[in-house]
Design a protein around this nucleic acid. Structure first.
Length: 283
DNA sequence: ACTGGATCCTGATCGC
DNA sequence: TGCGATCAGGATCCAG
């Protein structure tokens, strides 16, 4: 049984990133970066400290947005791109606090606010680009799940070329962004599709169910983040899901909420995958 | 053109 | 009690 502690140690999936964006924006918008301190450069990609300072010092934040699971902080000179990876957090402090272990990067704004990036596993990233459209990490991403470009027809057409398991298919960032391991299992359960079914054998009807399920799961989680958003100030922002709301993920051997059949765990693409063998049959 | 596997990392947990 | 082994996961990279 995988344990996901309520409201802590949250793995950032798209809704968590969305909540972080909304949480930090009001504290930094319009503010200029006064100083940047990089204490650890070894993240997913090495931090280029000089480039970061050259591009960002004394520049005002225009706005904060999100693309896939990347947080985009826009400046007149370019974009600060932050990925939380597996274990990253981005927090706003109103005053100086003692440094925590894994506080790798710190931005100080001219209103005194401090933005700290903390990431124990260092799967995250902090990048600066003067041209967002050219950034390798953003260039080949698929559509946003909450955009019109993401539809059942799109999935059906795209899947024709792919024989991989449908779960791996929807987790592929070139297919659609922001569907992580947890929400992939949850969505497939809602859509009653076996996670190992080959993507190219999934019918249009099944993709309609899956499309609807992904939206439902993501929107519910974003709303949940939204409800904790009012508490997102200083360092106490802890948006996220609660383990009791996950219907299959982490629930191996627990009865399916639909039919009481024990939930099964299998490995797909090196990732743990949970499903109900009765509700989700190969077709 | 696709696909599966290796890879980065630390903290929590487990077995001895 | 303490230690080493194992596992978890996002997303890219690479070989077949």
């Amino acid at each position: 049984m995988v344990k996901i502690k309520d409201n802590e140690n949250i793995m950032p999936e798209l809704p968590e990133v969305e909540t972080t964006c909304r949480g930090i924006e009001p504290h930094i918008q319009g503010q200029k970066i006064q100083s940047i301190t990089v204490r650890e450069t070894r993240l997913r990609w090495p931090i280029e400290t000089k480039q970061l300072k050259k591009g960002l010092l004394n520049q005002p934040v225009l706005e904060v947005s999100r693309r896939a699971k990347y947080i985009l902080i826009h400046f007149p000179t370019g974009t600060l791109v932050i990925h939380l990876g597996m274990s990253g957090t981005l927090k706003i402090l109103k005053e100086k606090h003692p440094l925590l272990k894994h506080d790798h990067v710190e931005f100080v704004f001219n209103n005194g606010n401090i933005m700290r990036f903390n990431d124990p596993r260092r799967f995250g990233a902090v990048l600066f680009t003067s041209n967002q459209d050219e950034l390798m990490q953003l260039k080949h991403l698929g559509p946003e799940p909450l955009s019109r470009a993401f539809s059942s027809e799109y999935l059906y057409t795209k899947a024709k070329k792919h024989r991989i398991a449908v779960k791996n298919f929807i987790m592929d960032q070139k297919v659609v962004v922001g569907v992580g391991n947890i929400y992939a299992s949850e969505s497939l359960f809602l859509a009653k599709i076996h996670p190992a079914q080959s993507a190219n054998t999934v019918s249009l009807t099944q993709f309609q169910h899956l499309h609807r399920a992904i939206l439902k799961v993501l929107k519910a989680a974003i709303q949940k983040g939204g409800t904790t958003l009012k508490d997102f100030r200083h360092s106490d922002g802890k948006p996220g899901y609660f383990s009791q709301e996950l219907t299959v993920y982490g629930n191996e051997n627990s009865p399916c909420i639909q039919c009481q059949t024990p939930i099964t765990m299998m490995t797909l693409g090196q990732r743990s995958t949970y499903y109900c063998p009765n509700c989700q049959k190969l077709t």
